[in-house]
Design a protein around this nucleic acid. Structure first.
Length: 273
DNA sequence: ATGACGATCCCAGATCGA
């Protein structure tokens, strides 16, 4: 008989996994997630500090890293099957890894994404990075909830877009700022709905409430100014809405020593026997 | 209030993040 029927999944843009290995160890010891999805690992696969995390019980590690930039990793206490890395926009950069995890007799597909930031100028004609971001989103449309065989699916990561008005500190002042422009927020919401994903964070914390997962390094005092954005997301198939027993944004991690500018988001699911 | 920071890289200033 299987004793454990809960699954805890975390996503965290770690902004260099080698620099913040200690913070990540602290995080997994305190919160004991079954699966941790990381973005911006900023190292090649051979440089990933796998051994210390294997020692902590994360024996199953799916890596898609590159030198210096980007990079995603999925660390798991449960076996991972069907590991695949997708390439988007014909560029070989490391922005996606997916896998299937089996728990309580169900197969759950898990996508880990790092969507391009998009540069400064929100105009695809003058800013190739913004064009890349929009093209990436168009390619993401094929990552639907029914692509592949599974009983449920999750899509998590740093999507670099704050789609709702209360996902930013000032909707009005950020309308022309990359991450909250109408073309980004409307495209993301359209692709999410058409692909069958539910915004699981907002099923738990209502859209009327401010909710952030990122605070700039450049603020003198991130907590006092509190000019954040919700750039990190946990999407799921509708059949995971009611099993989700807890959803936490670990805001306090922004105040840890030498922090990432993003904080972890943790979802717990009660999947039955 | 798009930055006053912080990360990467042939190690030091350019480039990127958002």
């Amino acid at each position: 008989m299987r004793a454990s029927s809960t699954l805890t999944v975390a996503t965290w843009n770690i902004n260099s996994v080698r620099l913040r290995q200690g913070l990540l160890e602290r995080f997994v010891l305190e919160h004991e997630p079954d699966i941790v999805c990381l973005q911006e690992t900023k190292c090649q696969n051979g440089q990933f500090p796998a051994a210390p995390f294997r020692k902590l019980g994360y024996e199953h590690i799916a890596l898609n890293g590159q030198k210096g930039y980007h990079g995603v990793a999925t660390l798991s206490r449960l076996p991972l099957a069907q590991i695949q890395c997708r390439s988007f926009c014909g560029i070989g950069d490391s922005r996606h890894v997916e896998c299937v995890v089996e728990i309580a007799g169900r197969r759950i597909r898990l996508h880990n994404f790092y969507v391009p930031a998009g540069g400064d100028e929100p105009d695809r004609d003058v800013n190739p990075k913004f064009a890349h971001k929009l093209d990436f989103l168009e390619e993401m449309r094929c990552v639907t909830t029914d692509a592949g065989t599974h009983d449920a699916a999750l899509l998590v990561g740093d999507l670099n877009i704050a789609p709702l008005e209360n996902d930013v500190w000032s909707h009005r002042q950020l309308l022309k700022v990359v991450s909250h422009t109408p073309v980004e927020t409307e495209t993301l919401e359209d692709l999410r709905r058409k692909a069958g994903w539910t915004d699981l964070m907002r099923t738990r914390i209502p859209p009327e409430e401010k909710l952030y997962t990122w605070w700039s390094y450049r603020a003198r005092d991130w907590q006092a100014s509190n000019r954040g954005r919700r750039l990190d997301h946990i999407w799921g198939t509708p059949n995971l809405v009611s099993p989700m027993s807890d959803l936490r944004v670990l805001t306090q991690a922004r105040g840890w020593p030498k922090p990432s500018d993003h904080v972890p988001v943790i979802a717990r699911f009660a999947l039955g026997a």
